[in-house]
Every structure is written in structure tokens, then in C-alpha cells.
């Protein structure tokens, strides 16, 4: 039986290998390349997407678990040309170096700020666990705070 879910608001159904991780459906079947493959074991967070609003590591989410799910990827974050405040903050703080992990960092941050709209440094330390090999953490921290501020005054 087909598994039905939505990705960025569009309905999709899936009939293939139910053990396949969501990551590969997004990248290879849905044509959404913004979600990245980094480690395959849920460690690095480059593949972070939202599943019913929560940040999950899509390399470790099997297709079998997705019936009725609502999935948002980095491609679904902006509204038309209007970037999400977190995306804006990432540009304003000039966070990306190579850029590979940043979609995952942004998705993790968007979910984090929903639960923790006014985060302390400790909140950030505990709530953001994605890996960045360029070491952009200093600017990520600033961007998270800037986004939080912008979202509160918006």
C-alpha cells in the first residue's frame, strides 16, 4: 500500500522500499537536493528536515514511518522570494563558508526557535547539535540570536 505524505505542502505517495531513509527520497526521487548527505547515521545533521514541525535527521527516518506526515525541507522554508528570518540572519551574519551543512543548521535552528524563542547561550549549546566542518559556530551563534530578535520584533 502506498505511503502518503506531503513535502513542502505538495502531496506525494511512495511505493518503493519502505526501509529507504527519507533523505534519499528527497534527494533522488523528489528532486530536492538542498537536504544533504553527511554521515548516514544521524550524527552530523546535514540532512535535517522538519517532520510535522520537529527537526529530524532524514538519513535515519525510514519511509515506512511517514504515512500522513508533513515534511518541510530547506526548499520549503522561504515564502516565494521572502526568506525565513533564519535564512536572512544567516546571510546577514555571513555564516556560510563551504555551505554544505548550512541547510541542516538552518532547519535545526528554525525548529529550535519555535520552542525556545529567546535562547540563552546555554540553550543554544544544548539545542543545536549539528556539525559544521568549516567551524562557522561563532557566526551561527550570532545568527541564531539575530534571527530570534528579528522574529520577536516582526
Amino acid at each position: 500500500m502506498a505511503i502518503s505524505f506531503t513535502i513542502n505542502g505538495a502531496r506525494r505517495s511512495f511505493n518503493g522500499d519502505e526501509e529507504m531513509p527519507l533523505l534519499w527520497h528527497l534527494r533522488e526521487e523528489a528532486g530536492l537536493k538542498g537536504t544533504k548527505f553527511g554521515c548516514g547515521i544521524g550524527q552530523c545533521g546535514a540532512c535535517t528536515v522538519h517532520l510535522d514541525g520537529d527537526a529530524v535527521r532524514s538519513c535515519s527516518v525510514p519511509m515506512s514511518s511517514l504515512d500522513g506526515a508533513s515534511i518541510t525541507t530547506i526548499e520549503g522554508l522561504a515564502e516565494g522570494d521572502d526568506l525565513h528570518p533564519v535564512q536572512e540572519a544567516w546571510i546577514e551574519e555571513d555564516v556560510p563558508q563551504c555551505g554544505y551543512c548550512q541547510a541542516g543548521q538552518i532547519m535545526a535552528t528554525v525548529a529550535f526557535l519555535k520552542d525556545t524563542p529567546n535562547p540563552t547561550d546555554d540553550d543554544i549549546n544544548n539545542g543545536i547539535t549539528n556539525l559544521c566542518r568549516c567551524g562557522t559556530y561563532y557566526r551561527i551563534r550570532k545568527a541564531i540570536k539575530r534571527a530570534a530578535e528579528n522574529m520577536q520584533t516582526a
Binding site: G34, W90, I91
Partner: peptide, 21 residues
């Protein structure tokens, strides 16, 4: 000057060779 690829990066554009189809 900010990273010239920043907009592509934060919106998930396929700018890496792993993204090539």
C-alpha cells in the same frame, strides 16, 4: 563582502557536485 553563494546556500540550491543529476 559576504559570501557570493550565500543566497543559493541558504535556500538549498544544488551548488555541490553531489547535487548533480
Amino acid at each position: 563582502a559576504r559570501n557570493v553563494a550565500a543566497l543559493d546556500i541558504v535556500t538549498g540550491k544544488p551548488v555541490f557536485s553531489l547535487d548533480v543529476d
